[in-house]
Amino acid sequence: MAKMNKKWVVLCSTAIAAVYATGYYSTEAQANKIDMQQNAQIHSQSSTVAMNTTQLKLPQTNTKITTKTITKTTPKTTTNIKTKTVQSRNSSPNISQSKTKQSITAPAKTVQIKRIYKNGTFTGMGENRRGSIQVAVKIENDRIMDVEISDFGMHYSESDIVGLPGEVLKRQNAQVSNVSGATYSTQAFQDAVLNALYQAKNA
């Protein structure tokens, strides 16, 4: 078997490089678009991270109290009661209940307190060099009620990260533990949740 002539090696290498360059530049516009999206995401996430880790951890008892008071009151007073309860999230259940009673007896006194997040379902996208993940995060009264992977576009198996939505619900923030062997999917998922939380953030 004769060795390939050096001229042929150079010629073939050049031809292959030309085909590669054609492919690279023909997909450049698409790549730039994704890069811009990623930059926008990084910008949005940097402002969400601090808020996310500190403010979304609501005690379970407060939610129960809020639900209880809603059933007892009229629609007009419900808003007041809910906002009051959220405001006193660090107080004991008894104190918040007494405040609720007060607001029922005096419905004219309205205190409007802004929530950190809007209620509803928000989608977020996380991307890296190995693909993208889109999630739908449902938020109610500043609590993450549901997280769903709405689009899985990673070059890995979706089964690697099936446990992560549950982890977000449990921790009530986007910080999930890394899945061994699925680091890139974990990162993309985490970015997607942060992005969704940014979309949900009240102005």
Binding site: Y20, Q30, A31, R130, H155
Partner: peptide, 26 residues
């Protein structure tokens, strides 16, 4: 390499699969 890149160029031209990723790291 020649066949791979040529097929990926065709994929990109006809919008089949994810040719963009294949031309870039990793």
């Amino acid at each position: 390499l020649g066949t791979s890149f040529l097929l990926l160029v065709l994929m990109a031209h006809f919008n089949i699969g994810d040719a963009m990723d294949a031309f870039r790291p990793p």
